[in-house]
Computed example of a mutant assay.
Amino acid sequence: MLKLSILDQSPVSSGFTHSDALQQTIQLAQLADRLGYTRFWVSEHHNSQGLAGSSPEVLLSTLAARTNRIRLGSGGVLLPHYSSYKVAENFRMLEALYPGRIDLGIGRAPGGTPHTAKALRGVSADLFEGLERFPAQVTDLLGFLTDSVEPGHVFEGIRATPMVAGVPQVWLLGSTGQSGVYASQAGAAFCFAHFINGAGGQQAVRSYRSSFKPSALNVVPQATVCIYVLCAETQAEAEELAASIDLRILQMEKGEFTGVKSPEEAAEYVYSDWDQTRLRDNRSRMIIGDPGQVREQMLNLASSYQVDEVMVVAGGYLPETRQRTIELLAEAFDLAALKV
């Protein structure tokens, strides 16, 4: 039976505020918890008009307090901006408060403009050096999480507090094969962002599995794939609502991060020939349709990646649209049977 999870980016739709978007994330997590979803992740973006989630650790603490069963995680913490030690302490704190429910997803993307990245790291920071240091940062992070900092290391003897028995599940996230390489070398789980890059993900996951090195985190490789989904009662309704996703992705490609437009606003947008080509190409990053169509396409996607779990970015302008998507998916995949 296919497991389903959710990545929610706290999108800010036109006519709504950042505070509204965060409340919508809380409501979606509570619904996913009741419906039987496996995990619920939140993202990290900075200086963005269209995305409200800038601090996943803080948001996760609220979500954990307001849900009962579902795993919660970051999708993901942008590690090059931060100290590995501080990230380890933040997620050990979450694990101590909510044992067995915390995922630590990490990525190496900037999550904003280079100028914003300098504000995060310090104005004198070398952004390229941060990316080059990423593998070493991952090693340090895992050492702190598992109390396995090697003898002779500059951080030998330093332990991340609070000291707890459990370890958050660690995932590396990416839209290219390079993140899969890092995940396999670290013995971490790997999530491919098909919603960002609709090509090459299957090969990236195969390569991750073939080169995986067992670790204190995982004895065998664990992978999942994340994709945009919009499900409605009919295909016609789904296509009408999906115009908001089409336009949002197109505008992000153009560097316009203004948030999610309504289907009516999308219908009034003047699309160039290049825009139309991008709309068609970007559909490879989405699954749109009625419950039967969406179920079939998601099963095909999972089969192509050889995974037993698919992570959904529920798309749409209104929170009710995103909520209805995950309700229909829960029914189509009988998630109630997976509840523990």
Rank of each mutant, 00 (worst) to 15 (best):
D140G: 04
E233R: 11
E331I: 12
G111A: 08
P291M: 10
M252Y: 08
I158V: 12
Q9K: 13
L328S: 00
I326H: 00
M163I: 15
E296K: 07
K118W: 03
R159K: 15
G198Q: 03
G316N: 05
A64K: 02
A216C: 11
Q9D: 12
Y85Q: 11
A314I: 07
G200W: 01
R121L: 13
I245G: 02
M1K: 06
Q24A: 14
G100W: 12
Q203Y: 08
V310F: 04
L97W: 08
W274G: 00
G292Q: 06
S14P: 13
T67E: 01
E327M: 10
V219R: 15
C191H: 09
L335I: 06
A186H: 04
V138S: 05
I196T: 02
V219E: 15
M163W: 10
L35A: 07
D126C: 13
V312L: 04
E320G: 12
G259L: 02
A238P: 01
E256H: 11
V149M: 10
G198V: 00
R295D: 05
E89S: 06
I158K: 06
G289F: 03
G122W: 08
Q306A: 12
T62N: 02
S175H: 04
L173P: 05
Y82P: 10
H81K: 09
L120N: 04
Q185C: 11
A109T: 10
S211G: 11
E256V: 12
G112T: 05
V313R: 12
F190H: 06
L335N: 03
H18V: 12
